[in-house]
């Protein structure tokens, strides 16, 4: 069954629709203006119907944006990540280099200060190798006869005595460390002024020979060079006494010391050129100077 529309409406249906629409609008507008608020029921209803759609749409949009931003645009992120990683690596490398430079600088500063405190000419050399055998203790340095290094010369560092030059070539030399069993060094116990001979014992240990039993030597006493050999200046730090034993009978007591120099970390050394040298500033005096210099790192130590 078909509902027949009136012929007048059929003719003017567009105009009618426009008028009704405009009137509805006007009425609603007039109502809102009058109440200064929305129409409660209609608004709530429309809101209730429209919201789920909006919710879904937003979720999908957000999902798509997420997909694009996290996956489709990941190429750029990956590139950026690589770039940042490279930058971090470069910065880390630069940081390491700067740290290494700072450490080297500190070493050189101490070496320079030590040289300037000394009285004789010295040759600075770098350690380029260690003893290839397990029985002996020596290091190879990168200075030889051409630079004035000769056999028997004393080798020291800011931390103390290292050893003596054993063999030389034109540009290299082998230094026998004080820890080698072949090494012997005339020394003094700083506090008691007891005379002794420091002989190599083990990997990083020496023993004190001919130390009289009557001498009051205790653990922690410092041992310095006596200057009697003519190669090492007097007052250079050799090490610290670690063991003192007065076993059984005899004229001498047994004592061992730990060298002041850590031979496993030896990098630069000083070769003393003069064979007869006056006394070196005592170890405590040097330490005090060193402390002062460390407190004021900007200052350049003055040459005497």
């Amino acid at each position: 069954m078909r509902i027949r529309t009136p012929p007048l409406f059929r003719r003017y249906h567009i105009a009618v629709f426009v008028i009704v629409l405009l009137l509805s609008g006007l009425i609603l507008m007039s109502l809102r203006v009058k109440q200064r608020q929305g129409i409660g029921f209609a608004d709530a209803f429309l809101l209730e119907i429209a919201s789920p759609f909006q919710k879904v749409t937003t979720a999908v949009t957000q999902g798509l944006r997420g997909v694009f931003s996290h996956y489709f645009f990941l190429v750029d992120t990956a590139k950026e990540n690589d770039l940042l990683k490279k930058k971090i690596a470069q910065l880390q490398e630069a940081n390491h280099q700067m740290q290494e430079m700072a450490i080297a600088n500190e070493r050189y500063r101490r070496l320079l200060q030590f040289r300037e405190e000394g009285v004789g000419p010295m040759i600075t050399a770098e350690v380029i190798g260690r003893d290839p055998s397990s029985w002996f203790r020596s290091v190879t340095i990168n200075k030889g006869e051409m630079e004035g290094v000769n056999r028997g010369m004393a080798v020291i560092s800011p931390d103390g005595v290292i050893g003596q030059v054993l063999k030389t070539s034109l540009h290299y030399a082998t230094v026998l460390l004080i820890t080698d069993y072949n090494s012997a060094l005339d020394a003094l116990v700083q506090r008691t002024r007891s005379k002794t001979i420091v002989e190599g014992k083990e990997e990083n240990r020496c023993q004190l020979k001919y130390l009289l039993r009557t001498e009051d030597v205790v653990v922690g006493d410092r041992v310095i060079t006596s200057g009697l050999g003519g190669k090492f200046p007097k007052g250079l730090w050799v090490g610290e006494i670690q063991i003192v034993e007065k076993k059984g009978h005899g004229v001498f007591q047994h004592a061992e010391l730990i060298p002041s120099v850590d031979f496993t970390k030896l990098e630069e050394v000083l070769v003393i050129k003069e064979s007869t040298l006056p006394a070196w500033p005592s170890a405590p005096v040097r330490e005090e100077k060193d402390k002062r210099a460390r407190k004021t790192p900007g200052e350049v130590p003055k040459k005497k």
Binding site: P132, F136, T140, L166, N182
Partner: peptide, 13 residues
């Protein structure tokens, strides 16, 4: 060579 580079004075190697 071993003797040369080591602290060995006797030339044992």
């Amino acid at each position: 060579l071993m003797d040369l580079f080591s602290g060995n004075v006797l030339g044992l190697y």
